[in-house]
Write a protein that binds this DNA or RNA. Structure first.
Ligand SMILES: [Mn+2]
Ligand SMILES: [Mn+2]
Ligand SMILES: [Zn+2]
Ligand SMILES: [Zn+2]
Lengths: 125, 125
DNA sequence: CCTCGTAATGCAAATGATTTGCATTTTCAA
DNA sequence: TTGAAAATGCAAATCATTTGCATTACGAGG
């Protein structure tokens, strides 16, 4: 169980991207070199090792992103465009949960849905 | 385009549930009576009409919930159990986004990941 | 009350993302 | 150098969801 050549390349692909990537985006960015199954297996491996995280929006697809920074998202419901930001306000909520629920928090997911710059303008016509 | 018998039943199923439901949970709760496709089509219809919303966690599955209340979730990464809460702190973040991004917010999703009561205890052994 | 057109439903097959089984190759500790 | 365990490739399978098409139900206009 080690960080092999492909796993490393895939991790780097994700870390170098400014936005989260789908499995096939990662596949493409690596010139279709590692087999698609290898990509998926690597993603699972990296996620288990907590080197990456994944999130899914409206579509059935997962998006993968680095665990080096804290991410939140702006997801365009029209074109699927994703932007990221990192301002986080979960701490106060965490306290609320710890006080009122019997639940051990390990992570959280937050994103806004709406219209990106382009789709917002298209709307006007 | 109207709220037919099945659509109404499915809406009621969702509104009467304390937690979000998957398509097949909804199917089961209706004794497998409307066809599965009808369930999915009804869900799409209801979501377009903004009567329900959906969210997906780690699995490729969508969970549907009523739009009558504001929901956030506690998602157990071990057993998939879901709890809900409604305390919401998105407003301040919304201002931040409006100030710094060119994005028209229409909704947001927030959930904590972690271990539910049961899985938390199992962990100890 | 009938009648026709449109929308809704059922059924089966298709789709898309992801996973899995198995054969082959790579890795690395002994 | 060698053998076992892990990683990879390839093809087929799986799971949730969607779609095409034939049939049925609904409702406005007659
Ligand atoms: Mn955060
Ligand atoms: Mn909220
Ligand atoms: Zn957009
Ligand atoms: Zn649990």
């Amino acid at each position: 169980m080690v960080l092999t050549k492909w796993r490393e390349k895939i991790l780097k692909t994700i870390e170098e991207s400014e936005k989260p990537l789908t499995a096939d985006e990662i596949y493409m960015k690596n010139n279709f070199k590692p087999n698609f199954s290898t990509v998926y297996r690597a993603l699972k491996f990296l996620e288990n090792k907590n080197l990456i995280k994944s999130v899914s929006f409206d579509t059935g697809q997962k998006y993968f992103y680095s665990n080096k920074k804290h991410y939140h998202f702006l997801y365009c419901i029209k074109c699927g465009e994703i932007e990221v930001f990192n301002k986080c306000i979960a701490t106060q909520l965490e306290e609320f949960i710890n006080k009122n629920f019997n639940f051990k928090i390990t992570d959280h997911v937050f994103y806004f849905k709406g219209l990106c710059k382009n789709c917002k303008e298209d709307e006007k016509k």
